[in-house]
Design a binder for these strands. Structure first.
Length: 423
RNA sequence: GGAGAGAUGGCCGAGUUGGUCGAAGGUGCAUGACUGGAAAUCAUGUGUACGGGAAACUGUACCUGGGGUUCGAAUCCCCAUCUCUCCGCCA
């Protein structure tokens, strides 16, 4: 959510920034409504001031044993006026809020401008795609042949877009989770969080999933609970409504959770394998930063995510998303794309974003620079560190051998207890 | 799931015959005095949001959240949420 005062004072600049995202938005109606709101507010507050003053008088008159029935009648009608104006004010505020909640974040000036992903900028490539002297397979072929991934039975008990991991496949998933968490905690200085997998609508609103993206999520019928689409939601909302101490910042959290996505509108895309699931595992990185440091923190966070890919020996590239390809709440996003030999291309495995104060304003996360100073909004960041299922897919495809077995990356061997997976 | 108790400022805690309560007191914190320095002591200050104002300042709202009664609600009524106690159930 953008700052209402900022929008008011910088209408043209905001419209221009949002146009870069592809949506043409005129804020004329918003600005006009906002001005009306202030007029009504001033009027209501004057009336309330009068009511407060007169009510005190009534108290005094009654205590002195006098008769106040005449002014009480007058106050009754004033009360009606106040109620009416308050109702109108409430409507206006709700309208303004709805408009504001639907406005995406303003892209950072360093973000490439363009309507879609063809305007994304490749920043760097790390690692060489492996050379095979045989035709590399897809990870679902490898997994099924090794008996470690079972898509058919998953469909039987749940449906499409679910996977059952078995044996060393299940262990590999678990090994990757532990390797990610341990690396981020012990090497990169993050604090591990293990949050609920369900959150309420206030939390979903805080990070921007609601109200615009309701259909992307699983909602528990008859409750206010949603299955989390990413650990970003519970973790970023942890300090919601709080005022942090500047000395605590930056706060670095990492969390493993299962993630749940309805994948509405993705019919026919990535229907096979681990790439697009209703339920998948992810280790997330979340930061709360001083505003002036948030872009440095974004670079570091991205590097922390890249580090686990480097340690695993997986080739990847880093891409800056263009204005048209960025998420709703983000001011700047780097995607990490891992090389998948079976796909013969790079696929997203992490998305690292700086939201600046966009989420912090929604979730009301602030900090105080000094004792007595006014609270300011923190900047929030997050990134996958990284997607677990896609990592397993990448390991299976990049480390596959001619005989159908899969070599275990060295850093995972202590977690796996074996050096390869074979039939 | 059943019965009961509770939710007040950073924290603790008064306030329930509705008015003088943005809210006593304590504590914490900040500043100053005292001190070689510290402790102790004393003094002063110490919430947030929104509106108006160049500013000083000022108006409104907020005593978990929402709704109601009333000229007027921290105080009365209703609903929700959370916490605690007891019972039941359960990994």
């Amino acid at each position: 959510m953008l700052d209402i005062k900022f929008v008011r004072a910088n209408q043209a600049a905001v419209e221009e920034a949002l146009a870069k995202r592809g949506g043409k938005i005129s804020l004329d109606g918003f600005i006009k409504l906002e001005a009306e709101r202030r007029a009504v507010l001033a009027d209501v507050e004057n009336k309330k001031a009068r009511r407060n003053a007169v009510s005190k008088e009534i108290g005094k008159i009654k205590q002195a044993g006098g008769d106040a029935s005449e002014i009480m009648a007058e106050m009754r009608s004033l009360g009606d006026e106040i109620a009416a104006a308050d109702a109108r004010l409430g409507e206006m505020e709700q309208q303004l809020e709805e408009i504001l909640l639907a406005i995406p974040n303003i892209p950072h000036e360093s973000v490439p401008v363009g309507p879609d992903d063809s305007f994304n900028t490749e920043m760097r490539r790390v690692g060489e795609p492996p050379e095979f002297d045989f035709e590399p397979k897809n990870h679902w072929e490898i997994g099924e042949e090794l008996g470690i991934l079972d898509f058919e039975r998953a469909a039987k008990i749940a449906g499409a877009r679910f996977t059952v991991y078995k044996g060393l496949g299940a262990r590999l998933e678990r090994a990757v989770i532990n390797f990610f968490l341990n690396t981020h905690c012990d090497k990169h200085g993050y604090t591990e969080i293990f949050p609920p997998y369900m959150v309420n609508s206030a939390a979903m609103r805080g990070t921007g999933q609601l109200p615009k993206f309701k259909e992307d999520m699983f909602h528990i019928e008859g409750t206010d609970y949603y299955l989390i689409p990413t650990a970003e939601v519970p973790v970023t909302n942890l300090p919601a409504g709080e005022i942090l101490d500047a000395a605590e910042l930056p706060i670095l959290y990492t969390a493993y959770t299962a993630c749940f996505r309805a994948e509405a509108g993705a019919a026919g895309r990535d229907t096979r394998g681990l790439i697009r699931q209703h339920q998948f595992n992810k280790v997330e990185l979340v930061k709360f930063s001083l505003p002036e440091n948030s872009y440095d923190e974004l670079e570091k966070l991205t590097d922390d995510a890249e580090d686990v890919l480097r340690l695993l020996g997986l080739p990847y590239r880093v891409v800056t998303l263009s204005t048209g390809d960025m998420g709703f709440s983000s001011a700047k996003t780097y995607d990490l794309e891992v090389w998948l030999p079976g796909f013969n291309g790079y696929r997203e495995i992490s998305s690292c974003s700086n939201f600046e104060d966009f989420q912090a304003r929604r979730a009301n996360i602030r900090f105080r620079r000094d004792q007595g100073a006014k609270p300011e909004l923190v900047h929030t960041l997050n990134g996958s560190g990284v997607a677990v299922g896609r990592t397993v897919a990448a390991i299976l495809e990049n480390y596959q051998q001619a005989d159908g077995s899969v070599k275990i990356p060295e850093v995972l061997v202590p977690y796996m207890g074996v050096t390869q997976i074979s039939k």
